[in-house]
């Protein structure tokens, strides 16, 4: 099976200055170290040292030599199987992780929405978490206060906003997280598979906001298993497979490659 990368220039279509990269990744790789037997305690470390045993580990390369540039105003979808490195890529973009090789440049303020409960403290109220999250995203207290009403309205949490967020359902947590992230004046939005948890109406509302951001020339990187969303919103889609980019270009084409990949997998399973 061979999948050719389909790279095309999308800047002309968008009418964006092609020199203005919002994101530039050069040869980035990321390795996780998975330990079979880790001396998580000083006690075991000493015992292992005495026995002369070293930590046994295996290196997992979650990303291998990934290079890509994303222009300002582009909306890029990232698709791929579970464990293909999508979340790792987003975490590199926002500096949660550092690459083992290569360089990563992101211009401007980043707003992230990576996983459920990102940046939240479960014991305090939704309202206080808004301030907490806003400060992590780089807002001053004053800015946060100005946007508070809008954020609460958008989340539609009503009275729950004053309850500790450990009492929230997962959808409610997403609402709160999305409401903060989308109301931050950021240049780059990184969204990881978070929309799926909200109910249909809230999803539509979020997607409308994403449209709005697109109109305002914000850069958006969207990870999703929902290919329909990718096809509808993205001007470009990247297919990751075992940590490598194997397709990058028009969403339709990347999605086709993704489908082929999935089909070949189930084929292989059926054969076995």
């Amino acid at each position: 099976m061979k999948i050719m990368p389909a790279i095309e220039d999308t800047s002309a279509k968008l009418g964006v200055d092609p020199t203005s990269n919002a994101i530039l990744i050069r040869g980035a790789s990321k390795k996780y170290r998975v330990y079979y037997e880790k001396s998580e305690n000083i006690k075991y470390l000493i015992i292992n040292l005495l026995k002369g045993k070293a930590d046994r580990h295996r290196d997992v390369w979650a990303l291998r030599d990934v290079s890509l540039s994303i222009r300002r105003g582009e909306t890029v979808g990232i698709i791929g199987e579970n464990g293909s490195g999508k979340s790792t890529l987003l975490k590199l973009l926002c500096k949660i992780l550092l690459p083992d090789t290569g360089t990563i440049d992101v211009r401007g303020r980043i707003a992230t929405l990576l996983e459920l409960g990102s940046g939240f403290s479960m014991e305090i109220s939704g309202r206080k978490n808004i301030f907490m999250n806003a400060s992590i995203l780089g807002l001053s207290r004053k800015e946060a206060r100005e946007r508070l009403g809008e954020i609460i309205d958008f989340s539609e949490l009503g009275d729950y906003i004053n309850a500790p967020i450990k009492t929230y359902s997962s959808g409610m947590l997403v609402r709160l997280g999305f409401a903060v992230a989308i109301n931050v004046e950021a240049d780059v939005f990184l969204i990881d598979e978070i929309l799926a948890v909200g109910d249909e109406r809230f999803q539509r509302k979020c997607l409308e906001r994403i449209r709005d951001m697109q109109r305002r020339q914000r850069t958006i990187v969207l990870v999703s298993h929902n290919v329909a969303t990718i096809e509808e919103f993205c001007s470009r889609a990247i297919l990751l497979h075992e940590g490598r980019i194997i397709a990058d270009g028009e969403p339709g084409r990347s999605i086709d490659e993704y489908r082929k990949l999935q089909a070949s997998r189930s084929g292989a399973q059926a054969d076995a």
């Binding site: 949660i96 409960g117 940046g119």
Partner: peptide, 11 residues
């Protein structure tokens, strides 16, 4: 004790 602040956001 604060994985939410370490794994999911950058600060």
């Amino acid at each position: 004790n604060n994985p939410n602040l370490v794994r999911k956001v950058y600060m």
